[in-house]
């Protein structure tokens, strides 16, 4: 039984590419995330907005992917994922929004 994960590429009104992820990300499907980010980025240098608002679980395998693209992506997440994103250092490398419950994620998403 694989881990449920839906990855949907989209674009904002301003043309910024967005990758909407919903479900759980672990060792069994982190490769799917990698290929989805690669294809959403295409040839552009970014930034790609990776929206993790609907992600309920994210482990070190998923974090590794995000870290490897850190200079070309921005991340929107929820307070629930705050500790893992902070501990792995992603918040120091790129913009991560939505971690503070008082400051909701970018309404543009």
């Amino acid at each position: 039984m694989t881990t449920p994960l839906t990855l949907t590429p989209a674009r904002r009104a301003d043309g910024t590419p967005v990758l909407n992820a919903a479900g759980e990300i672990d060792m069994s499907n982190s490769a799917d995330l990698a290929s989805a980010v690669t294809s959403a980025l295409g040839d552009s240098g970014g930034p790609l907005i990776v929206d993790l608002t609907e992600v309920e679980y994210l482990d070190s395998a998923g974090l590794s992917i995000l870290l490897s693209y850190a200079d070309r992506i921005e991340v929107i997440a929820t307070p629930l994922l705050g500790p893992v994103l902070t501990i792995c250092g992603l918040t120091d490398l790129t913009t991560v929004r939505g971690l503070d419950p008082a400051d909701p994620a970018d309404p543009a998403s």
Binding site: T2, Y57, P79, V84
Partner: peptide, 29 residues
């Protein structure tokens, strides 16, 4: 492939333990 079902079972059990959501998440991770 076992990770997801194991996680589901653990999440359900942790809910029975009456823990705060962030702690459930931490234990799951």
């Amino acid at each position: 492939t076992q990770l997801a079902p194991v996680r589901r079972a653990l999440r359900s059990w942790l809910t029975k333990c009456d823990l705060p959501p962030q702690m459930v998440q931490n234990v799951l991770v």
